[in-house]
């Protein structure tokens, strides 16, 4: 398994939100109307025009307040469930770029069943534009990557939280990061490291950051995947 991978070291994130803005800037996506909800997090959720979002959580861990930051985006699964749900190789609404591993939503996603595509995602990432019915999410800045540049969010990160490169290099960096993090955070872990191309190093329990930061343990993901594989077998047979 080659291709590209992100390594996001949350022990270094200061929630400056440079990544969130750089994403909007590169893609020329408009602003969202936001209001004060009592947290620094804005907007409140991902949307068709907000593909990268820094989530903020205030939680108590061992009687100490922890302010947790989670720069969320599509994980570009190694075996993408959305792609599988759309019909895998038999369709081109969702493209799985074999070279980089990027999962790319095209305009043709407007023809897909939104609830099914969003439901297939273990991380609850895809969002639909109400007007055009096109489903959107992070595209790994595929245009930049193909031109030898880093994704906009990675390039702008001032703290070294966001890293991007060949998968084997990132896995190595992730293991090194984890070893360092364990000294201060014994429960630190690499979230879904084998299944995704966006690997988060979480110093605390992933559930504390966001309910879908970590996909449920292997079996459930597998069940879901095989469910969709079953579901689309007839359709695929028709096309091939």
């Amino acid at each position: 398994m080659k291709g590209k991978t992100f390594f996001i070291d949350l022990t270094k994130c200061t929630a400056c939100r440079g990544c969130q803005i750089a994403c909007k800037q590169w893609k020329k996506l408009p602003a969202e109307k936001t209001r004060n909800m009592g947290s620094h997090q804005n907007p409140q959720d991902l949307s068709a025009i907000t593909l990268k979002l820094v989530r903020f959580q205030e939680v108590e861990v061992d009687k100490t307040l922890q302010w947790l930051f989670f720069p969320e985006q599509c994980r570009h699964c190694v075996d993408p469930y959305c792609w599988e749900a759309a019909g895998g190789d038999s369709q081109d609404a969702i493209v799985h770029d074999k070279e980089t591993g990027a999962v790319l939503f095209t305009k043709k996603t407007a023809e897909l069943d939104y609830d099914m595509i969003r439901g297939a995602c273990p991380f609850d990432i895809p969002r639909m534009d109400e007007a055009t019915k096109v489903i959107s999410k992070c595209d790994m800045c595929n245009d930049r990557v193909q031109n030898g540049l880093k994704p906009a969010c990675v390039q702008t990160c001032p703290t070294g939280t966001m890293n991007f490169g060949d998968r084997e290099d990132m896995l190595k960096l992730a293991e090194e990061g984890l070893a360092k993090a364990k000294v201060k955070y014994p429960k630190a872990m690499l979230v879904n490291v084998k299944e995704v191309r966006v690997i988060f190093l979480a110093p605390f329990d992933p559930k504390l950051y966001h309910k879908t930061m970590m996909a449920e343990a292997g079996p459930q993901m597998f069940t879901r995947q095989s469910l969709f594989a079953q579901l689309f077998k007839p359709a695929r047979a028709m096309f091939t």
Binding site: K28, D92, T106, K107, D129, T132, V134, S136, D143
Partner: peptide, 12 residues
Amino acid sequence: LSLAPTVAKAQR
């Protein structure tokens, strides 16, 4: 085919 939904043109 177009890579990103609505903004592929601008990106290129």
